[in-house]
Design a protein around this nucleic acid. Structure first.
Lengths: 226, 226
DNA sequence: GTGTTCGGTGAACGGCTGTGCACAAACGTA
DNA sequence: TACGTTTGTGCACAGCCGTTCACCGAACAC
């Protein structure tokens, strides 16, 4: 069976992907490249809505980004490399969350409420990134899993520093603080996952997260290592 | 390009897949069917070691099970149906864990230690099932995610019943118990995931899980709803 | 002993996959 | 203005994908 030649336009016909409005200045080559690079990342992120990263195809992502599969290689060596960039981007967004959490001056005793609120809001505002992390945290591709695990671990370490500044908790020894921080992170991850599955239940989820964090703090203040 | 005919054996040549030893009685048709069905399930479970379910192919699973892709349909309508059976099987194994937990008569005050031990042992002994659940809990295929969520929820409900039988916790109201049970489940899931990633760190992981459960119990005994 | 049921087979299909290649047009620079 | 670099193009290839089909032989029911 010979593949019949399809009627096509001449090769290299239209290079201009994005219509620039008439009065805007034409984009530089760098800017155009960055633009399609972002288009690829966004396309991949969008596809992750209903399939896992490992089940995604280079061709589909390229098509969704508006370029041919061959042009994909002008930006990434492979889908895996794109995935690693996605991990970085996602956690950049998470670090932003932490900064917000630290700067937001909480009423004393109200820290938990504001922490939960910040977390919930941030997840809702970065659904695609969080979905990606949630999917690939236990997903099929080893390098992504490793990258995500590393980032979460570093997040947990920063949290230890934060906890140390609190009146009662600050007196605990480092292993205990590690253990408690990891418990907090576990709750936060679970909250994010629940929120992704049921965004409309935001209220309940936030309330439950607050209570669970309070339980932990309550337990932690009673904690003394043997 | 015409596909060239490959040299092959006659159709329907060898129907006997499994070599039966000489003195064993020949297997009945039902037994043979059940056997290849299990081979398919095991093959799928094994493939999940390094790819997600959505990235798995019917052909590969069939080949790994020792049958042709066509024969797959004698057992399942689709890969998705196979996946749902896998969910059921995995949670059957989990319910077994709960039964073990209840029957194991714990020294009073030692419940947490034995609970953690049972969990850790069970995960180690059913790695493939737990890996599957961990992967697909946030994975790409909606029906699997839904099935897993349902089972975990029911697990959490049973745990509420257990908690109610404890001296101090039993006095808490139902919403509080729900919240605390879900916190326990969250910790258990996180423990299982950590264990899958680093089976050799079993000791540390178990110790940390015990401590985190103690924190929760400590906090829960101080808990009183507004 | 005879006919039926059923778990298997291999060939074939149309479609999608990643990747290599040669080429073109726009951009940037001398 | 001329020239090289860069970012895109289309075509081609070989390989895997799910699924349909007709067929086969062992196991079963009578």
């Amino acid at each position: 069976m010979t593949p019949q030649p399809r009627p096509v336009g001449r090769p290299g016909a239209s290079l201009r992907l994005v219509e620039t409005s008439l009065d805007e200045p034409p984009l530089s080559r760098q800017e155009r490249k960055e633009r399609t690079r972002q288009a690829l990342l966004n396309a991949a992120l969008a596809q992750l809505e209903d399939r896992s990263f490992g089940a995604m195809s280079l061709r589909e992502v390229s098509k969704a980004a508006g370029i041919t599969p061959t042009a994909f290689y002008r930006h990434f060596d492979s889908m895996e490399e794109l995935g690693l960039v996605l991990v970085d981007d996602s956690f950049a967004s998470l670090r932003e969350l932490m900064r917000a959490g630290r700067s937001e001056v909480a009423e004393p005793g109200d820290d938990i409420r504001t922490s939960a609120a910040i977390l919930v809001r941030h997840v809702q505002e970065h659904r695609l990134h969080y979905r990606f992390i949630a999917r690939e945290r236990s997903g099929g591709i080893a390098s992504l899993r490793a990258g995500i695990a590393r980032e979460i671990h570093s997040f947990s370490s920063e949290l230890v520093g934060d906890l140390r500044r609190y009146p009662v908790l600050g007196e605990l020894d480092t292993p205990s603080l590690d253990m408690i921080a990891s418990l907090f992170v576990t709750v936060m991850v679970a909250t994010a996952e629940r929120l992704l599955d049921a965004p409309e239940a935001e209220g309940e989820i936030r309330a439950r997260t607050e209570d669970q964090m309070r339980i932990i703090v309550l337990g932690a203040t009673q904690w003394h290592r043997v």
